[in-house]
Design a protein around this nucleic acid. Sequence first.
RNA 1: UCCAGCUUAGCUCAGUCGGUAGAGCAGGCGGCUGUUAACCGCCGGGUCGCAGGUUCGAGUCCUGCAGCUGGAGCCA
Length: 466
Amino acid sequence: MSVITVKQALSGAPSEGATVTVRGWIRTRRDSKAGLSFLHVSDGSCFAPVQVVAPNTLDGYADSVAKLSAGCAVECTGTLVRSQGKGQAFEVQAHQVTVVGWVEDPETYPIQPKAHSLEYLREVAHLRPRTNTFGAVSRVRQTIAHAIHHYFHEHGFQWVNTPIITASDCEGAGQLFRVSTLDFASLPRTPEGKIDFTREFFGRETFLTVSGQLAVEAYCLALSKVYTFGPTFRAENSNTTRHLAEFWMVEPEIAFANLSDDADLAEDFLKYVFRAVLAERADDMAFFVERVDKTAIERLERLERASFARVEYSEAVTILEKSGKKFEFPVKWGLDLQTEHERFLTEEHFARPVVVMNYPAAIKAFYMRLNDDEQTVAAMDVLAPGIGEIIGGSQREERLDVLDRRMAASHVDPGAYGWYRDLRRYGTVPHAGFGLGLERLVTYVCGLANIRDAIPYPRTPGNAAF
RNA sequence: UCCAGCUUAGCUCAGUCGGUAGAGCAGGCGGCUGUUAACCGCCGGGUCGCAGGUUCGAGUCCUGCAGCUGGAGCCA
């Protein structure tokens, strides 16, 4: 007897006629008067469940198999045989079915063999991985995460684990979550009556990171090709289909590189991930096409082939001005592109992913490299049809004098960034990188409408249940 | 945070002009069948989000609140 996965069973492994054990959770049970019950058992190893055929002559059939309902945990031992029915190549002819865990009250089990709304399933986040949709999303997410690590490993990048807790109070844009061990009921005070943060655990104010970029730049200027991949936190009061308060971000950083190299990396990297999903998760992607988004597969195939459009910010503004489209928000050089503008560019004008490059300096962060025109910085956004900004990146300002000017203009305290300035004092080189939200990528690949369905337990304003 | 919409059975929804509640699925029982989110019959299942108001009478109209969803801003 060998314990095998549902995936193995469906492919006939280890061999036809072998005695095998499969373990998993019941999706459906159908009884036949021929003296059989058909159990669909799922274990997450692939999209499809395996069919276990249980004859009513099994020991204890009436008290076990005959009472199984959706969600029950079972261990089934039997012979792996070619299926007599349609719909699967192999099935398990059971000798023994052991109920490992019953469903207490089948009538109120939240996951039924039917279409549930995604909104409802968010309310039962602990049970939604048992559905087709969330099983598929989980496997695609795993494939994407693995492909990300694999891509970087293959290309000589080192994964750098930058800290989750940070002391810098303005790592970039974004509201921060405070990390504190102080007793809120009686806060320590300084003689001036202010909160005495020296009494904090770390002896200073600390927060959850909004980006590992600044920290990873230091490793970039030693190891040449690096990336971070970890949780990131933004305390923004954003209530949209594409924002989370806690999400996973990938941030590669490359030395001796400019913005064009950065865009090349972003495009090559995304295409690699798309290829991996198409190759490894055909079953799950076919389900998304059927139930979630008809174009899920063809979109990935198209993106994997097409070259991304590249356009200067200034040129993008001209395109928008000449488009004849009526936009709700004004289009003018110096203003940031709005969602509607980005959608027009990527969905209508170019009809493929677009990299918009070299934005006005005034609307971008202090660490982005000032171009020779002194008006723009070497920043880029990768826009994708249907989801908008999927990647944001830039070449970093490697010249100390220019960085200091930019920090002053942005009212950033240079004293808090001594170590960051050091990188420009000791062997500085041009370098660049970008940030990619993992959940945005998962949302996009699966064709989901809401980012809250791309992460197991979504954290959004007012919601940290589970 | 701003704007809009939604909230009826375990789930998905219907509910007309204001007259005291319906279907499908799920569950239970029975029938039928190597079945494929099976099919057929019967049965149980409701504080119509909460609090007020109008009315002889409110699921339905009005006000407030809450939750959810969508759009916007911010961004990955």
